[in-house]
Structures are given as C-alpha cells and as structure tokens.
Simulated scan of single mutants.
Amino acid sequence: MTTKTIQKRTISPFRYDIVGSFLRPERLKQAREQFIKKEITHDELRKIEDEEIIDLIRKQEKAGLKAITDGEFRRSWWHLDFFWGLNGISFKVPDHGYQFVGEETRAGTVTVTGKISGENHPFVEDFKFVRDHVSEGTQVKQTIPAPAQLLIALTIGEELADARKFYDTNESLVDAIVQAYQTVIKDFYDAGARTIQFDDCTWGLLVAEPPDGIPLLEGQTELGAREALKHVFVDINNRVITGLPDDLIINTHVCRGNYHSKWAFSGSYDFVADPLFNYENVDAYYLEYDSDRSGGFEPLKLVSEDKLVVLGLITSKSGQLEDRAVIIDRIHEAAQFIDLDRLALSPQCGFASTEEGNVLTEEQQWTKIAFIKSIAEEVWGD
C-alpha cells in the first residue's frame, strides 16, 4: 500500500539517517585510557573530546547527514553514563557484565544511592557544545536511554534492594524516574534541542525467550510477566512524553543489543507490536531489520498512522556492504504494510554503543553511511 506522493522530510527522521554512535578515534581512546591512569587531567581529556567531536561534526555534515550527534564520544556506555548523570544514581561494578551471544561485556551497572532527580545533568552542556559547532541548517539529535531502560536497570537483581532503601514501591520509583527525565528533557529543550531519541533495549528483552526472575512482577508466570511488562514499559515512556512541547520530536530506537559486533536478544516484533507500535507516543521508530533475528515486516501494520519507521536494514556490526538490490527490495516489501512515504533507512544500530566499538573500520563506517544515502536518494529521491 505505497503512497503516490513522496514528501520531502524536513524534520527528524530523515530519509537517510543514523542511530547515533560512531567508532571512537584512536586518539580519543588513548586519551580516555590516560585519564583513567591519571596521566592527564579531566580538562585535558575534555579538550581532546572537544576536538574529536568537532571533527566528527564536520565529517557528518560532509556525508550529507541532516541530523547529527556527538557520536557519544564523551560516553563509555550508551546508557550508563546518562543514568549516573542523574542525581541519586551512581555507577557500580557488578560481578559480571551483560551476557551477549558469544561474549560477556565488561562489568558495569548503576544503582540507587539517594533520591533521584534530573537537575544539572552534564549531558545538557554536552548538547550545547554540539549545538554551537554545527553549520547553519544542520539539526542536532540528542540520544538518551529510554525511561523504561532505567527502570529495568534499577529493579533487576541486587539493584532492587538498593532502590527499596529509598522507594518502597515500584510506583514511587517510576514517579521519580518520570520526574527526573522530564526535568532533563526540559533543560535540553531550553538549550535548543528539538529532537530527542530514546534508545531502548527493553523490547529486545521481551521479544526473546521469557527471561527468568523478573522482579518487577514477582509471583507471575514468565509469560504473564512479559505480557504485563509491555504495558509497564509503554506507560513509563508515555508518562515522560506527556506534556512535552509540541515542537519537540521524540523518536525511539528499539535494540536487541550491540556490543563489539555481538547481539543479546533474538525475536520478531510480533509479541511487542501491541502496545509498542500503536500506543507508545513517539514520532518514529528506528527498528533493527538487518537479519532474520528481527522477523518479518508484518507487525508494521500496527504502527499508528501518524508515526514513521526507520528501517535498520544496513548492519553496523560488519563492514561488508549489503546487496543493494536486496535492500531496495526489502524496503518495498516493508511498504506492503506501511506506506513508503512513512519509511526511511538507517543502520540497524550505532557503530559503537560502547567505547569498544563494533568490528569494522572508520572507513567502512563512512562507506556504509554513503551507501544508505545513495539508496535513500534512489528510493525516495530525497
């Protein structure tokens, strides 16, 4: 059911787009290592970060990207750095990292150490830096982990006991997370942000085989817990979105894990499409579709008519280019379930969700982006 008229995209998401993170340059990796060893100061590290981000901004603009990021160059993790930037949340080193297929990540998580709030989040100043260094007409996209992602981080395993020291119920914890997020987002908005992206692996958790021991809903069957969690996740994300300015775009990226080219979860969107696609109040979904781990396109028929979908058909986990004809065919296959005019194209995830980065070169990274741009121009003429 393709539309006859293709509209030019002037706000995020654009026809060819990115998820957010980029491979860290070697100079930046070395500087971060020197800082950890106390061989350079924080100001010296910051200066190198500034220089590398400015260089990245220029490369993104040269590549023709219309909404750019700082590549997450100031972060070690795509999510944890944002979490511990909130008041009342601290970094913690657990006994084990996250388990991915074929690899365990380095260990890191967050825990509640006080009342949670969002004042003076350091990411706001980071946003201002990018804002001040882009060319006129270039839009800046701010990526942050979804509120549901923080809820899961604070209620799985030992972290639940720490949360209970300050919040007696899940409801009171959710209230605090919602308020903290709204505070940070308001500060982003006041600084000029008009596009914010919620990166969200919670849906990847649910599309997989039922996980053991979900503490949010103790006493229920695993399937029952999964069913209920769908609505818990949509509810907390929607509560944060409620009341935000009308001209603030909120998009979301649904992820199955991205660490050193490994993945954590496998499963189609069928189980989560309702309520994810029809009740979450975002403007667009960036969806992984680079392998058969994501299933087919049929769930896209549930996407509300006012929302867009960015097809992550190009993998960021490998430097090898996909078959151009196959990608174009898959775009039109997806258009059987959602109008072509409501579709766009991107990598399936960032190129470096953590500072380790995926297993490809920077040259291959930029070649992928050029490949995406050329396909989008052929399909949509935009």
Rank of each mutant, 00 (worst) to 15 (best):
N170R: 13
S76W: 03
I372V: 05
T315K: 04
I249H: 03
R75W: 04
W380Y: 11
R15N: 02
P245F: 06
G243K: 09
E333C: 09
I54L: 03
V326T: 02
G257M: 03
S135A: 08
V326E: 13
E158A: 15
I214N: 15
E44V: 08
T242L: 04
F22D: 08
L28G: 07
I89N: 13
K373F: 07
R330P: 00
V93L: 11
L229N: 05
V101A: 11
G381K: 02
G295A: 10
L248H: 13
V309W: 02
L160P: 03
P299K: 01
N258K: 05
S304Y: 02
Q179E: 11
G85L: 03
S172E: 14
Y98L: 14
R9P: 00
E136Q: 13
Q149V: 15
D70A: 15
I328H: 11
I375S: 12
D55T: 11
C349M: 07
E61A: 10
E159T: 14
S316D: 09
F351C: 08
I327F: 07
E227S: 14
E26C: 09
S316M: 10
L311F: 14
I156F: 10
E298N: 07
G85N: 01
T111H: 10
Q149S: 15
R74L: 11
P147S: 11
I36L: 13
D95E: 06
I6H: 13
I249T: 13
W77V: 03
Y289V: 09
W77T: 02
K8Y: 01
F297H: 09
G118S: 04
A284I: 07
I18W: 00
L206F: 07
G295M: 03
E26D: 11
L86W: 07
L173A: 06
H231K: 09
P275A: 10
F265E: 01
E33P: 00
E378W: 08
P210W: 15
E39C: 07
S291D: 05
N258Y: 00
R342S: 12
K8G: 01
D175R: 07
A376T: 01
D81I: 06
R239P: 00
F83V: 13
V19L: 11
D43M: 14
K29I: 09
E171L: 07
A228V: 05
A225L: 05
T3A: 14
E125W: 01
A273F: 04
I328P: 00
I53D: 00
Q320D: 10
